[in-house]
Write a protein that binds this DNA or RNA. Structure first.
Length: 625
RNA sequence: GCGCCGUUGGUCCAGUGGUAGGACAGUGGCUUCCCAAGCCACUAGCCCGGGUUCAAUUCCCGGACGGCGCACCA
């Protein structure tokens, strides 16, 4: 097959896969565009009964791994926050882009970028709009697309944050959060107390975030309201280390920035341990969470042959990140497995890859910013093992002299003396010291300043923690799980579609049917089975409509892993009454005593048993399909 | 936000200047002892606004929504 053909086929596959999944999602209640009765609204999706359950199960699995098993704390912050929060975080500026549209070809450009490219100005983003319009006219900037002059075209602001007003009237300006992270950062002063001022500690949050996208696309993949699951891991960068050993042998497919910049760059197949050792993954905390995440994705049903970690290129990184890796999933049906094409290395540029998580080293950016803007302290006091004795230059000005001499400026002069002592102790060698306050020089008698070198004991220091942020897109993860679970096969010559969802996350765990819908004896027992299984905490669906094959297919399509069927044969068996359990992927069946159904199915869901164990344990009373 | 294409039962499609037809799905019944079978019946639709016309689901304009390309995605 030529390369062109295979590419064309892959693209066809993308369309088919996404269309088939969208159709299934609408028809079976996974997700669909919101408010279609009112014409719909772009970028908003409603999860139907199956989708909401699936999403909830994914969130629970994430919580189990990233909150509970890591020993972290979960919080729930508001989705609306006042303006100053986002002034501090940088979102108000960083989110506020200037666009200018070409009158000739209609293409929009970042006005600030044009100015920066064509002039000496470097921070055009911070200039007011009229000034940017003037610069465009003065420098006769032209459309990069068609070359038409842009002078006279209006420069327009758009902010990717949803704005709202808090309280009646003009009220206070607020914004819907563009990421859940800020809800954690702003509460850091309290959160550190709950962690008893001990680094390292982690805080998680699962919740909605909002971005007023210019043009939402690709269904669930890019929406205006979405769910994030984020962990903010706070560490002392000088000291704290992750337990890298526990994930060192996790095998990963890395796509480093250096490979992306090559024309024929490829994957680096390695282990977390080796990648950190060799410096491909620069930060061991990032490495640790890549390992944890890879195992988690595998657990919830992401196909590891269609999964990779891609490092951000330097120009791609956010304002706060010093290093960043994305988890990416392939949705077009192209396997990235190197074994897939007779040993040929997989081509990283093939396939339809989307970001499903980001792992950023945010340094102390966020806490420092909030420390500058807010009133509270965003540091942790860390005690030294041994108190340290340090020599420190101090002044203790005689205020009874400074007061009469400088009047209202006396305090400022005293502060200036204190600063000077720390900065330049030698300045106090002479008979007078000169300090500057508000541009005026003031001479102070050295004795009045009362300068001396003092020995001080320091028990510890205030540390601004660094932050490692694994940030997961829940909706995209849900979509990926559905796409990777989507299977078509044949049963008895009939085409079948099913979702091979993992029992832990399948929205419905077991379907229960009477073999015949119009048989009182069977329906009564089946309904009892439903009650028993629900009592055992399982998610159960009852169905007696249509023939048995149709009912199996319905459950197959929503990914229900097991179906229990009550039949006469089972009610007539000597001893205990039995029913069949049918496994979704293989359609194999095993006959199990009705009394044992709840325990056995619960055992499989928790991972203590497999379906094959049941087949070994009980006589194969099914039809041996 | 720009350009191209589209929008018809729950889903996927056909069709028409005189308000529509199929397939699948669904519901009830008959049949049926294990994988989308069959028979009968039923439920259910022309995206919104304006214009042209005696008459618009159909033609024209605008909008909303969707797909693709460009831009954007910190």
């Amino acid at each position: 097959m030529s390369e062109d053909e295979s590419t064309a086929e892959a693209e066809q596959g993308v369309e088919d896969a996404s269309a088939a999944i969208t159709e299934l999602a609408k028809r079976r209640g996974f997700f669909f565009g919101s408010a279609e009765a009112y014409g719909g609204v772009a970028g908003f999706y409603t999860f139907g009964p199956q989708g909401a359950a699936l999403k909830r199960n994914v969130e629970d699995a994430w919580r189990d791994r990233f909150t509970v098993k890591e020993g972290n704390q979960e919080i729930e912050a508001p989705t609306v926050m006042p303006e100053p929060v986002f002034e501090a975080s940088g979102h108000l500026d960083g989110f506020d882009d200037m666009l200018v549209e070409c009158a000739e070809c209609g293409v929009s450009h970042r006005a600030d970028h044009l100015v920066e490219d064509e002039t000496e100005i470097e921070e055009a983003e911070s200039l007011p709009i009229p000034e940017v319009e003037e610069l465009i006219a003065d420098h006769d900037l032209r459309c990069p697309n068609c070359g038409a002059p842009l002078a006279g075209q209006p420069v327009e602001d758009f902010n990717l944050m949803f704005e709202t007003s808090i309280g009646p009237g003009s009220g206070q300006t607020g914004y819907l959060r563009p990421e859940t992270a800020q809800g954690i950062f702003v509460e850091f002063p309290r959160l550190k107390e709950y962690a008893r001022n001990q680094l390292p500690f982690g805080v998680t949050q699962i919740g909605r975030a909002y971005r007023n996208e210019i043009s939402p696309r690709k269904g669930l993949i890019r929406t205006r309201e979405f769910t994030q699951a984020e962990l903010e891991q706070f560490i002392n960068p000088e000291r704290d280390e992750p337990s890298l050993d526990s994930v060192a042998d996790v095998e990963v497919r890395l796509y480093p920035a250096t490979e992306q910049e090559k024309d024929d760059g490829g994957y680096l197949l390695t282990t977390i341990g080796e990648a950190v050792e060799s410096g491909v993954i620069a930060n061991e905390w990032i490495g640790y969470y890549l390992g944890v995440a890879q195992r988690w994705y595998d657990r919830v049903g992401v196909d590891m042959d269609r999964f990779r970690f891609r490092q951000h290129l330097s120009g791609e990184r956010a304002h706060y990140a010093s290093d960043c890796w994305d988890a990416e999933a392939e949705l077009g049906g192209v396997s990235a497995s190197p074994e897939s094409e007779a040993g040929e290395a997989a081509d990283p540029s093939a396939g339809d890859w989307i970001e499903i998580a980001g792992f950023a080293y945010r340094g102390d950016y966020d806490l420092s910013k909030h420390g500058e803007h807010a009133d509270d302290s965003f540091t942790v006091f860390e005690q030294y093992d041994e108190p340290k004795t340090v020599e420190r230059a101090v002044v203790e000005p005689d205020m009874s002299t400074l007061g009469p001499e400088f009047g209202g400026k006396a305090t400022d002069v005293a502060d200036a003396l204190s600063d000077l002592a720390a900065r330049d102790p030698d300045a106090f060698d002479g008979e007078t010291v000169t300090v500057e306050v508000d541009g005026e020089e003031h001479a102070v008698d050295a004795e009045v300043a009362n300068f001396r070198i003092e020995e001080q004991t320091e028990a510890g220091e205030h540390v601004t923690p660094h932050v490692i942020e694994p940030s997961f897109g829940v909706d995209r993860t849900v979509y990926t799980i559905i796409a990777h679970a989507y299977v078509t096969d044949e049963v008895d010559g009939e085409r079948r579609t099913y979702l091979a969802l993992d029992p832990e996350i399948a929205p419905t765990y077991v379907g229960v049917f009477p073999l015949l819908g119009n048989d009182e004896a069977l329906t009564a027992v089946a309904r009892e089975v439903v009650s028993d299984l629900r009592e055992a905490g399982l998610s159960v669906s009852y169905d007696d409509s249509g023939n048995i094959g149709r009912r199996y297919r319905r459950q197959d399509e929503i990914g229900t892993p097991f179906c229990v069927t009550v039949d006469h044969e089972g009610l007539e068996t000597a001893g205990a009454e039995t029913a069949t359990i049918r496994e979704r992927n293989t359609t194999a069946q095993v006959r199990v005593p009705i009394d044992a159904l709840a325990d056995e199915l619960a055992a499989i869901r928790s991972g203590r048993k497999a379906f094959d164990d049941l087949r070994a344990e009980y006589d194969d009373g099914g039809r041996g399909r």
